[in-house]
Each structure stands twice: as C-alpha cells, then as structure tokens.
C-alpha cells in the first residue's frame, strides 16, 4: 500500500451557502495556492473548479435553504493541490447522470457543465454522495514545478 504523503500546508474554511460567498471561496483557495507558485492559468483552473463546486452546493445541495459548506485545501511538496468541498445538503441520487455534460436540474439559466468543468480543469475528481446526507467533492491538480527558490 502506498504511504500517505503528508501535506506541507493546509487550510480550512467554513462558509454559509450565500451566493455572495462564491467569489470569496475561490479567491481564498487561489490565495492559498499561490504558495505553489502556479501560473495564472493553473490558478484560474483551480478558481474555476472551486467556483463550480461551491455553486453546486448553493444551487443544488441547499436549494431552498442555507447550510454550511466546508472547504479544505492541502498542498504537497511535489506541487499538488488537493481541494475538498463538502456539504450536508440533499445529496445526489445519480452521480453518473449528474456528471454528464449539459445535464442539469438547475433551470434554463444553468449550463449543466459544473462537473465537466471540474473534471476538465483538474487532474483528478472524485464525488461521493449520500441522498439526504450530503456530497463531498475532491479535486486534485499538479502545478508544474518550475524554478524553485529553495534549491
């Protein structure tokens, strides 16, 4: 079994599912990620993926209510960032269906691209969900290791 790698730094954030917090959540994770010295594009990818996951919590998990969203981010020596976004909302009945591009239950103004974007903009995406209990999304991306000041 592969040994569990220890994160070199981590952060946790709990926010209520107010849509005004979408911008706060993605900017916070991006600011934390800056320690990996990512390119603007790598940072934008993570910002976009976090924005999608948090929006899912607001639009779907806590559709008619306000609940907490737990965001945890870890960075590793090999340049990886791992972001976990968790809610205790309604859960997803059919994860495979929810992950299909253009599938949405969010109405005509929603593109149904949330999971497709998370998948496309990160290296790894896992979704765990229990109906009535909530959903946890874990995303991972490796930032290209360029010139390191500490070498």
């Amino acid at each position: 079994m592969k040994a569990k790698t220890k994160a070199k730094n981590e952060m946790r954030l709990v926010i209520p599912s107010n849509s005004a917090n979408e911008s706060f959540a993605r900017s916070t994770v991006a600011a934390f990620m800056a320690q990996l010295d990512p390119t603007i594009e790598e940072m934008t990818d993570i910002k976009t993926a976090v924005s999608e996951a948090v929006t899912n919590c607001i639009v779907h998990a806590y559709k008619d209510t306000i609940g907490n969203i737990w965001i945890e981010a870890k960075i590793y020596d090999d340049g990886r960032i791992k972001v976990q976004i968790k809610d205790r909302g309604c859960g997803i009945k059919d994860i495979a269906k929810a992950r299909e591009p253009l599938f949405t239950t969010g109405g005509s103004e929603r593109a149904g691209l949330g999971f497709a974007v998370m998948e496309s903009f990160t290296d790894k995406l896992s979704v765990r969900s229990v109906v009535g209990k909530g959903t946890t999304v874990i995303m991972e991306k490796r930032v290209a290791q360029r010139y390191r000041h500490d070498s």
Partner: peptide, 16 residues
C-alpha cells in the same frame, strides 16, 4: 476577468 460555467448559462439564455 473571470468566468465559470454560469457564463455559458448566461450566453445560452440570451441566445434563446
């Protein structure tokens, strides 16, 4: 400066 998939929804809705 930034757009997530909500921007696609915005375009599609106006297109419709």
């Amino acid at each position: 400066g930034f757009m997530d998939s909500s921007g696609i929804g915005l375009i599609m809705g106006r297109y419709k």
